[in-house]
Simulated assay, not measured.
Amino acid sequence: MRDALPPLTSLSAFEAAARYCSFTQAGSELNLSQSAVSRQIKRLEADLGRLLFERHYEGLRLTPAGEQYFRVVQGLLRELRDETARLRRRGDDRQLTLASSPTIASIWLARQLPDFQRAYPDIEIRILTVEDPRRLDLAEFDLGIYYRVPNEVDPPGLLADAIFEHEMVSAVCSPIYLERHGKVIDAKQLLTSHNLMVVEDHYHDWLTWETWYRELDLDWQAPLHTLRANSFQLLMNATLAGQGVTLGWMRLLSAELDQGNLVQALPYTLPSKGSLSLLTPEHRHLTDPMRAFRHWVLSTS
């Protein structure tokens, strides 16, 4: 039947490919291969009898028909996601979905939730971990907890309330590391004789080791020994296991510091540009669990 709708999988692949102008990036978002996305687009173009993309050596470009179809498909998929999320929430109005980075979820949020659940035992918690808040689908969660840098890391469609108004950043390591490698004598020796944990992630580039040194008026040079990863959670776990020194947000890591699992490697602290924040989707009707958690986390932290 010519009036039948195309498969949802083809429409989703088209919407993502048009948004990124890339089959590869669309596949990454949808957990599909580049070739699978390409097949879905070809199938959709054959069904419509129109080309949706122009293939150039520089990349993809939407045709005029593709631009118009993209606007329609994107709007419909957004409405479908929002309504699906609303129906799911109505079906279980005691569930609260919290989005957070893996590091914040494991190091801070997991330690705070028992207190919340004792205060609100009827609310069922679901945690969604996404490293970069800019990749969040607003329909998939109720509230988010992320470090936010105003005007730098500002996810669209979200309102932010600071959980920590003031936060300091210091060089931290585990006592195990100091036992194995000796005390960090000064900032210069840290760069020449110790192992620095380095996050290779554009979202965390707003505070690097170099920035930390220069903001504190300490002499900077490229460190001689590093462990690099694109996951702050992985590096934090390695730090706790005694593999090196990392930049640590002191209030976020307060439990680890209080319990002696982490210690300051140097006495310097730098005020953080970012603050741990509660993110609320704009124009979202606040459910009772959302109101309860907002009140609890903003008044107790």
Rank of each mutant, 00 (worst) to 15 (best):
L5R: 11
A26E: 07
S272Y: 06
L60G: 02
T9Y: 06
F141K: 05
L128R: 05
D132C: 10
Y268T: 05
P121L: 15
G75R: 14
P267C: 11
R148T: 08
V130G: 06
G248F: 01
E167M: 08
E165V: 10
A85H: 06
L62W: 01
R291T: 14
Y20M: 01
S33E: 08
L278M: 06
G242S: 03
L224N: 12
D161E: 15
A292N: 13
S35W: 06
P271G: 11
L159F: 11
S10N: 09
W249P: 00
S10H: 10
A238T: 00
A105F: 08
S272W: 08
R251W: 04
P7R: 12
L48A: 07
D219C: 08
F14L: 07
R180F: 03
E83D: 11
D142I: 14
T211W: 13
H194E: 10
T211L: 15
E67T: 03
E29H: 10
A139L: 10
I185Q: 14
T84N: 14
R89A: 15
V172F: 01
V149L: 12
V199N: 03
I41H: 02
D288F: 14
T226L: 04
A160T: 06
L76R: 07
L216M: 09
H194L: 05
P6W: 05
M197D: 03
H56F: 14
L5S: 12
F116S: 06
A229Y: 02
V263K: 00
S174I: 01
Y177S: 00
G144I: 03
G91F: 12
R88G: 11
P64W: 00
L279D: 06
R148D: 09
N31I: 09
G274A: 15
D217V: 02
Q95V: 15
G75V: 10
S106H: 10
T63C: 06
